[in-house]
Design a protein around this nucleic acid. Structure first.
Lengths: 204, 204
DNA sequence: TTGAAAAATAAACACTGTTTAGTAAATTTG
DNA sequence: CAAATTTACTAAACAGTGTTTATTTTTCAA
């Protein structure tokens, strides 16, 4: 009997509708102004309906986060295609920073806010970022193999590169660079200079 | 007449009482559970009273943030005292990371959350972090002067070192390192290794 | 001591995430 | 097909949030 299958399909469609509504709200109004009620209104359902498909807001945000990571991976696949691993590393870094600056609300959800990580407890591990991180790890392991970078351990390398990229993006997004008395454009240049200098530093 | 002076003094005392109540709430219950009502209850005043001393929550958080930065500067002054600038840079980095890990709620307020930065608009600049950042800049400019590091521009250097430190701390605090399938202690070691490796990388 | 000014608050407003109780629709059963 | 049952949905409420308003209490000056 195909009814169970159709129901399952409808259930997934509804979840997709909710995720999509949430993402639209993010992009239009920003993360802070995205409430369950707003999302419900956007998709023309009552707020209570959302709770038939998601246990709580965190669980919903976790699914939105997954969608966001899929977007990042798509961009990586398009922008970081160089054969040479070191060149690809450069592309990854620049793409990451560009992504953060252009999709601040999504970056927030992926790397800054606490909320969606609450559903990742002891047992269950965080799979959303897995492929994007894997992309970096793969690249760095090729770099190390071919002795193109000064790193020896892949995990330490990945941790470092990611930390540098995230540090620059998140301090910028959260306006902490205001401590340096510089214009907005000068700060952008300084971030650019920092990542360039870092890429030079780690070059073997 | 000394009444005006006393009133002014009492006003400052009240603000101090509010700031202190807020900090206590942070340390005891965490940032997320700190509401105006909670703070009011802690200092045994009505919520509305707080609004006689602070325009809104952001303005209050800004003052709490200032207090937090004063604590960080005090710790810097105690822990990063080496004569040799490069050694002092190492001390600064380690102290910063240790501070972030030990005072996660304060670190949140200082470097991660958006809230207190909303009061820092176009005109007015962010002075809270000024001295702590100055501490790093001073150290790095000595390092560059004595050719102890591979940086040439002080601001780029400060931006980079800060970004690396903040990247490691904030990704850790916000549980994003869960993407690497490692135990908590292994992650701590990897962070340690990363900062050590970075300090080696920038050494001239 | 009385009148004005200042300080504090109770109660409300508009929002939030979430739950409960009840309605409307779809499906299964007799 | 009609009745019974399960499923899908929602209105209304609960307990919380930041903030404002109208009112009361306290403090000070005349």
């Amino acid at each position: 009997m195909g009814i169970a299958e159709r129901k399952e399909r409808e259930r997934l469609e509804m979840r997709q509708r909710i995720i999509h509504g949430a993402m639209q709200m993010f992009l239009e109004e920003g993360y802070e102004k995205t409430s369950i009620r707003n999302i419900a209104e956007k998709i023309e359902y009552s707020p209570a309906t959302i709770y038939l498909y998601y246990k709580d807001k965190d669980e919903l945000l976790y699914d939105v986060q997954r969608e966001a990571f899929e977007q990042l991976i798509t961009i990586f696949s398009k922008e970081a295609t160089a054969e040479d691993p070191y060149k690809r590393l450069e592309q990854i870094c620049r793409t990451y920073i560009k992504f953060g600056r252009e999709h601040t609300e999504m970056y927030d959800l992926m790397f800054i806010i606490r909320a969606p990580m609450n559903v990742v407890d002891e047992q269950h591990l965080w799979t959303n970022g897995h492929d994007a991180f894997g992309f970096l790890v793969q690249c760095l392991s090729e770099c190390i193999e071919q002795k193109l970078v000064r790193f020896k351990n892949v995990m330490t390398a990945a941790l470092s590169v990611w930390a540098m990229g995230h540090g620059l993006v998140s301090l910028d997004i959260r306006c902490r660079f205001k401590v340096m008395e510089m214009t907005e454009t000068d700060i952008q240049d300084a971030i650019e200079a920092s990542i360039n200098e870092y890429l030079e530093l780690i070059k073997a």
